[in-house]
Each structure stands twice: as structure tokens, then as C-alpha cells.
Design a binder for these strands. Structure first.
Length: 825
RNA sequence: GCGCCCGUAGCCCAACAGGCAGAGGCACCAGGUUUAGGUCCUGGACAGUGCGAGUUCGACUCUCGCCGGGCGCACCA
């Protein structure tokens, strides 16, 4: 390999460089975060991986993007915490263990070792000394401890209700894990089961989770903020009480349309709600039970269909419309949900299509209370319009619009004690127990005398019993139940015989606080150190995929708020800014085994080198957009990197040369590029940073070959700047360049170049002169040219004069120093 | 059905706060280098910004409507 490569064919040995720098980095450990550093602290985090096999393109993309910022922050003088660990509890390991008659830990820890090696090859700027796995007892001990803290606050509780059941995985699921009626993980059709399960009281934070989204909006992706708003689903309405003859308790309904109360002609109670069973008369009880059998056969998927005809059964009782005094028949039906609102509705067929459909099926009366427009030919009218048929002796809504009628009705109901304005949320409590093995056991003991007894803190962790292979086969109850010796314990309170809770926690519990554990991963005296949390947190940048928009990101937000109220952290939100990275697809489709279109990360790395793959992922598109591997060119990236590297061999001035006397044009471009890169990184436009770096490489090449020549100090400055810029994306190439330029490693920790503001000011700029919006002249002018001078120069220009011939100048718009527009006619 | 986001050369994408539509790359074409291929160097062609209005001296950029695509919610009363 020659020292000077003006023939343009020299290249560095990519594989040798990878091996070499991995050794150097291991020794220098340049990304170790020092808790005691006097530098300002930044916390940068990517969603930690689940150890299923080796790393794939998705991991490569998220870490490449994230590394740009983490490395940039180091160079800008921050102390950066960029940790990584493994989200290592979960079903794939358990399923593999069943298949292979093995223990889930075998699969899990084997894959973790593989992924760790791949990450190190990939050259991520991570502090590996802080790694841990959520399946380590030293971690889940604290998951259990945190569960108990929430339990003590009443934020973790058990209740019996109809829950989502995945028949394939044989476990219950949280609402968030059901997508279009199917299991988010395996795709099986979800059914309902009546079970007693553990919940976190996420609904206690519904309003705050919603309100804080306003603060997050500027620094989170719209997509995720919007998804969470929809998921929380706040609505405003009223609770209205409908008296029932012969029953003390009224039926309370939730409605968002209290203005239509005069039009309520019947009532519907969720068939599976306790209320239905309470209300039903003896004569109708058989009918209700038959109906329930039918309803429970229905899967969620068919329940979701809006086309489905309305069904229901009369409960044999009547309630009274509090405004009209009319007796309303009460039905049970499955189109009303037991766990939303009060599980009962007032049916207003005139203004609600679902109620209309039911009324049509059961031949019930319709009263319109909003006047539809003349050309309205639909059935229920849900739009705005003047109220009609809405008056009694005490209240008259006639002619009011919907908004006014609502508030008038609510005020009246409140005065009369018949109801009250209220807010309702779609968000449900988080169902956290799972009937599977490979998770953190719920640290509760059930005692026939003392009930639910928390496992004393000094007995944590409640370690998993040793089960493997066929013992783990899903059978609808937790495999832990089979470990008799483990299950049977003495009650910590009374010393009598008791049993352990045999469910494990949803793995999303593990990931709801892992970012706190990185602060003191080896601490065996506490879950995390509050002082360190204050020093480092909250997380300045979180990068991940938006498949977790309403899962992990919402749960972690809930956890943070709950821990704050317990006094464990002082943050309101865990992630100050969130960048959601797109997916890597191939030929327009998601990569998958069944489509046979998967691209192996390992093969790409071997063929093109780590840097080329990283550069490709960063350059391909804005970070939020998907990347189609069929559209990109890792070969082109590899060629560019060699081209950039070649500059470092051409530079002939010695290291330490003062760039002051160098070529001004190249220096200006160098300094502009640095300034622009700062701004582009801050706004996450990493693809443009790469494009600007390419421009600087091109300009430097030109300067060497056909400009000021390789000895000009500006050429060294530009080349060193290229090395620093490239270190964000292509660390191996950058190290090679840096070394060849006569510097010590590592370029990753050199200070970010200072921008010489004086160089950013141009000597002259090109002003465009337009006549009627068309460009007629270009003038070289001083950047500080006055508007008057520029206007005079523009009007004096021969090209402009020609364009103005025979025309009256009506107006001249001057935007010095860039533009003059002459309006004429 | 309700809501959010996005439509710029063949493709991926730039365009600061309304001011010359093109920065970068892929692919393509031509020339040079080379025994040849690849590499490397030089040059070139290709869109008027999804469609239609409006505001403006001036619109890729702002507003409205439509079309197309992505995402979220959806029998949530």
C-alpha cells in the first residue's frame, strides 16, 4: 500500500481494520461513563434487545442512528451514559426450551453472548460494564421489590373479570397486547375468559399520562403521541341515573350525549356485566343465561365487526327516563361493553346508529331530539343541529345546538341530583400476570388466614424453581403450580400453610424500569440510586421502534409517574425526547422467513464491512422512514468510505499544522459543514449529515487534484474534519484516517471542531434579480449590501433593463442580499 | 366512520424562517485511466414538486377541497 495514492486505487483492508480497532477500543474503553465526571451529563438509550438469535437489520439500524448522537455528545464534551442490556425474559426462550427439552436460560444466555459479540464487532459506543439481563435474579429481585412498592400503594391489585386469553400461548394478555382481536405476539385469535388476575392501576394516571403528552409533543414523534392520545381515549360526558321500579339502586349510565336524554327510549346493559344478572327477573333469567352462552362463543374478531346484526335479550325490568318519566325497557346485549363507562347505556336511536340498529331489530320507538338537515336521508343523525322534542315542565332545550344543550342538561341533572358531568377514559388497567414460566414470579403468598401477603423484602428474590422441557408446556395454568415444593410455604404473617402466587409478570414490567437499573447495575442494596437518577436522568434521547407506541412507552411512563409518587424518582417522564426509527424492509415487504426475503446482517457485514452497512443505514433516509434494502447501495457506501480514506494518504502537511494560512474557500466549506452538522444532528437529520460529509470529501478531492494541492493546510483541516464527521457513522474508517493523519487514537474522543465564525461570512453572495418572478440577472454583491444599493444595481443591470422594456415598474421587492423582484406591467 | 402523518428526477432523498426547484447517493449514458473487468477521474441526461383552487410581488413550503399511501382508534355509548 503506497503512502500517496493519487492513482486512486489504494484501499485499506476493511477486515484487518475491524480486527485491529476492536482490540484498541477494548483496551481504551472510550465510552465508559463516569458518575463522578465534572462534565455535563447526558443519558442516551436505545431500546434493549430481546435475545432471539443473532442481531438483525433492525438492531443494526437503531444502534447506528443512536450512535451518531451518543458519539457526537462525547465529542461535544458531555459525559455520556449509553448503556445496553438484554430484555431476556419471554416466551421464545420458553418455547425453545419445550421443543428442545432444555431450560429457557440455555437459549437466552447463549443468544446474549452471540449478540454481545456482534454488538462489539458493530462498534457501538456503549458502556458495556453496565450490562445486565432482566432474567438475572439480581435484576428481577428488584422488579419484584418494585411490584411490592406499587402493591403497597394500591397500584397493584387483583380482580376477577373477563380477560383476553391467547389460546395458542395459553396465557392472558393485556389490552395493549391484543391487535385487531389477535395476539400481538403469535397472531392467534384472542378469546375471553373470566379469571382473577393481577393489574396495575394505570387508569389512576390516565389524565396525567394524557396531559404530559403536550410537553412531549415537540420532542416525540407525532405518530407515537397521537397513538397514545387515541389509546388513552379521553371523552367528556355525564353519568345519568335512571330509577328502576322496585330497586333501590338506579341504573347509572355513561353518555357523551346528555343533550339527547329526551330521546332515550330504552336501555342496554352489557350482557356479561354483573348488573345484568342483578337486574334480570326470574322469568327472564334462563333467556339471559342462554344468551350469555352464545356471546361467549364469539371471538373478539367477530365481535369487532360493525356489520354484525344486533342481538340482545329483554331483562324483564323497566327504568324511568328522568326527564320524560317514560318507562324504558332494559335489555342485555353484547354491543355494550362491561368494562367501559358503567357497563350500561341509555339508548337513543335517533342520534346513535348502534341504538338505531338495535331499535330496528327489537321494534323499539325512535324519538329524534336533534333536527337533521332537510337533505338528510340517513337513519340516526349524529351531527349538530337544533334540539327538538326536548322539553318538559322544568327544562327546555328547544333550538339549542348540541354543545349548549349538553351543558344545559348537565347543569340541570346536577341541580336535581340526577346525574353529573364526568370524564371517561378508554384506557384500562394493565393486566400484568401471565400463566407462563420464564418471567419474574409475582412475590405474593396466598394465605387462607391472612389473604394476600407480600413476600418479605429480605426474602427477595423469589427465584424461579428449576423447571425444563415438558414441565413448561402451556396448560392454561402457570407451570410454576407444578413445582409443589416451591409453591407450598408458610405464611410470613401467621406461620400457617400457604401457597405462592404461581403467575409471573408480563415482561413489559421488566422493561418499565430497566433504564433506572443502568445507573447502578451492581448495587445489591437498592433497585437504583435516586441521586444518580437525578444526576443522569431523565433520558435525553431514547431511540426505538414505534411498535411500542402504546406498549413499552406507555408502561414506562406509567411506572415513572408511580415511582415518582412513591418518592423513588423525581422525574415526571422517563424519556425527554424520543426518536422512532423506521423499519428495514426488503422489496417493499417486511423481511420474514416465510417470504424468503430476509437479509442477513452478518452476511452484509462480511461482504461490505461494518462501516459501509452503518453508513448505508444512516444515509438511506430520514431516521423515521423505512429503509428498503433493495433501494440502497452498501457497495456505494463502501466505495465512498475508501474515497474518503484516500484523502488521508494524500495530505502532506504534518499533523499540528496551523490551518490559518490555508485556502479560504475550502476552509469555509469545512467550517460550514461542521456548523451544519451540529444543527442537523440536533434535529436528527443524520442522512443529510452524511450528504454534507460527502460534499466535503468531494471538495477536498478537488482541492488536492486540481486546486491548491495536497500540501495546503486547508486540505489537512478538511480531511481531519472528515475523519471526525465519519467517526459518528463509520468508526473504523475514521480511526484509519485519524491514524494515517498522524494522530493517536481514538478519534471517537477528540473534541468536536471549533467553528471559526469569521469563516462563515461570505466575501460576496449571489443576488438573484427577478422580473415578474423570472430570473433575469445574477449579481455578485457584498453580504451586507444595503437594500437601496442592491435595488439600484439590479435596475441598472442590462438584462433587467431588457426585460423591463416597454413596462412600468410598479413595485420592487428587495430582500438583501439575496433577491430583488421587480413587479412591472 | 373519526383522527394524525406523508406525496419533489427511473429510485432513495435535499431545499434554513415563503425567495434561483437540486445538495448527496443509486441506477443510466459518454469520455479519460486500465491488457480487460472493477476501481478512480471528468462530463452528461432526467422532475417543475399528486390534482384543483386560494393567499402573496413570489408557494415544494401557508390555507381549503380532492386523489393516493402509511399509521392510530373504532359497537368505547
Amino acid at each position: 500500500m503506497s503512502e500517496h495514492d493519487t492513482d486512486g486505487t489504494a484501499r485499506y483492508d476493511v477486515q484487518a481494520a475491524e480486527e485491529k480497532w476492536q482490540r484498541v477500543w477494548a483496551e481504551l474503553d472510550p465510552f465508559r461513563a463516569d458518575d463522578d465526571s465534572p462534565r455535563e451529563k447526558r443519558y442516551a438509550l436505545t431500546m434493549f434487545p430481546y435475545p432471539s438469535g443473532d442481531l438483525h437489520m433492525g438492531h443494526a439500524e437503531v444502534t447506528a442512528l443512536h450512535d451518531v448522537v451518543a458519539r457526537h455528545w462525547w465529542q461535544r464534551g458531555y459525559e455520556v451514559l449509553n448503556p445496553m442490556g438484554w430484555d431476556s425474559f419471554g416466551l421464545p426462550a420458553e418455547n425453545a426450551a419445550i421443543r428442545n427439552d432444555a431450560h429457557p436460560a440455555d437459549y437466552t444466555y447463549g443468544n446474549i453472548a452471540t449478540q454481545l459479540a456482534s454488538f462489539q464487532r458493530y462498534g457501538v459506543a456503549v458502556d458495556w460494564s453496565r450490562r445486565f439481563n432482566t432474567s438475572d435474579p439480581s435484576y428481577y429481585r428488584w422488579t419484584q421489590w418494585l411490584f411490592l412498592q406499587l402493591h403497597a400503594q394500591g397500584l397493584a391489585y387483583r380482580k376477577n373479570s373477563a380477560v383476553n386469553w391467547c389460546p395458542h400461548d395459553q396465557t392472558v394478555l393485556a389490552n395493549e397486547q391484543v391487535v385487531d382481536g389477535a395476539c400481538e405476539r403469535c397472531g392467534a385469535e384472542v378469546t375471553k375468559r373470566e379469571l382473577t388476575q393481577w393489574y396495575f392501576r394505570t387508569t389512576a394516571y390516565a389524565q396525567e399520562l394524557l396531559d404530559s403528552l403536550d410537553d412531549l409533543q415537540p420532542t416525540w414523534s407525532d405518530k407515537v403521541v397521537n397513538a397514545q392520545r387515541n389509546w388513552i381515549g379521553r371523552s367528556e360526558g355525564a353519568h345519568v341515573d335512571f330509577p328502576v321500579a322496585g330497586r333501590e339502586e338506579p341504573i347509572t349510565v355513561y353518555t357523551t350525549r346528555p343533550d339527547t336524554l329526551f330521546g332515550a327510549t330504552f336501555m342496554v346493559v352489557a350482557a356479561d356485566a354483573a348488573l345484568a344478572a342483578e337486574l334480570v327477573t326470574e322469568e327472564q333469567r334462563g333467556a339471559l343465561e342462554d344468551y350469555l352462552v352464545e356471546v361467549r362463543k364469539e371471538s373478539d374478531i367477530s365481535r369487532l365487526s360493525t356489520e354484525r346484526p344486533k342481538t340482545g335479550v329483554f331483562l324483564g325490568v323497566h327504568a324511568t327516563n328522568p326527564l320524560t318519566g317514560t318507562a324504558l325497557p332494559v335489555y342485555a346485549a353484547d354491543y355494550v361493553l362491561a368494562d367501559y363507562g358503567t357497563g350500561a347505556i341509555m339508548a337513543v336511536p335517533g342520534q346513535d346508529q348502534r341504538d338505531w340498529d338495535f331499535a330496528a331489530a327489537f321494534d323499539l320507538p325512535v324519538v329524534r331530539t336533534v333536527q337533521p338537515p332537510e337533505d338528510f336521508d340517513g337513519e340516526a343523525f349524529t351531527g349538530d343541529g337544533p334540539a327538538i322534542n326536548s322539553a318538559n315542565d322544568e327544562i327546555d332545550l328547544s333550538g339549542m345546538g348540541v354543545t349548549e344543550a349538553k351543558s344545559t342538561t348537565i347543569a340541570y341533572l346536577e341541580r336535581q341530583g340526577l346525574g353529573r358531568g364526568t370524564v371517561n377514559f378508554r384506557l384500562r388497567d394493565w393486566l400484568l400476570s401471565r400463566q407462563r414460566y420464564w418471567g419474574a414470579p409475582i412475590p405474593i403468598i396466598h394465605c387462607p388466614v391472612d389473604g394476600e401477603v407480600p413476600v418479605p423484602e429480605d426474602q427477595l428474590p423469589v427465584e424461579l424453581p428449576e423447571l425444563r422441557g415438558a414441565d413448561l408446556k402451556p396448560k392454561g395454568t402457570s407451570p410454576l403450580g407444578a413445582a409443589t415444593e416451591w409453591v407450598n410455604v408458610t405464611c410470613p404473617t401467621c406461620g400457617g400453610p400457604a401457597t405462592r402466587d404461581t403467575d409471573t409478570m408480563d415482561t413489559f414490567v421488566d422493561s418499565s424500569w430497566y433504564f433506572l437499573r443502568y445507573l447502578s447495575p451492581q448495587d445489591d442494596t437498592q433497585a437504583f440510586d435516586k441521586g444518580l437518577a437525578d444526576a443522569w436522568g431523565p433520558i435525553d434521547l431514547y431511540v426505538g421502534g414505534d411498535e411500542h407506541a402504546v406498549l413499552h412507552l406507555l408502561y414506562a411512563r406509567f411506572f415513572t409517574k408511580a415511582l415518582r409518587d412513591i418518592g423513588l424518582v423525581s422525574w415526571d417522564e422517563p424519556f425527554s425526547s424520543y426518536l422512532s426509527q423506521g423499519k428495514v424492509v426488503n422489496n417493499g415487504r417486511k423481511m420474514s422467513k416465510s417470504l424468503g426475503n430476509g437479509v442477513s446482517l452478518g452476511e452484509q457485514l462480511s461482504e461490505f464491512g461494518v462501516d459501509a452497512v452503518r453508513l448505508t443505514l444512516v444515509f438511506a433516509s430520514p431516521p423515521e422512514d423505512d429503509i428498503d434494502w433493495a433501494d440502497v447501495s452498501p457497495g456505494g457506501s463502501a466505495r465512498f468510505l475508501q474515497r474518503a480514506w484516500r484523502l488521508s494518504g494524500d495530505v502532506t502537511s504534518p499533523a499540528g499544522t496551523d490551518p490559518g494560512g490555508g485556502d479560504t474557500a475550502l476552509r469555509r466549506q469545512t467550517h460550514k459543514t461542521v456548523r451544519e452538522a451540529e444543527q442537523l444532528i440536533a434535529s436528527h437529520r443524520f442522512n443529510v449529515v452524511v450528504a454534507r460529509t460527502m460534499e466535503l470529501v468531494n471538495a477536498t478531492r478537488k482541492a488536492i487534484d486540481s486546486g491548491v494541492g495536497p500540501a495546503d493546510p486547508a486540505v489537512r483541516e478538511a480531511t481531519e474534519t472528515v475523519a471526525v464527521l465519519l467517526s459518528l457513522v463509520a468508526p473504523y474508517t475514521a480511526e484509519e484516517m485519524w491514524e494515517r493523519l498522524g494522530h493517536e487514537p481514538t478519534v471517537a474522543r477528540v473534541p468536536w471542531p471549533d467553528v471559526d465564525e469569521a469563516l462563515l461570512v461570505e466575501d460576496s453572495v449571489t443576488a438573484v434579480v427577478q422580473v415578474q418572478g423570472k430570473v433575469r440577472a445574477r449579481l455578485e454583491v457584498a453580504p451586507d449590501v444595503s437594500e437601496a444599493d442592491l435595488e439600484a444595481a439590479a435596475l441598472a443591470d442590462p438584462g433587467v433593463q431588457r426585460a423591463l422594456e416597454g413596462k412600468q415598474v410598479r413595485k420592487v421587492i428587495v430582500r438583501a442580499p439575496k433577491l430583488v423582484n421587480v413587479v412591472a406591467g
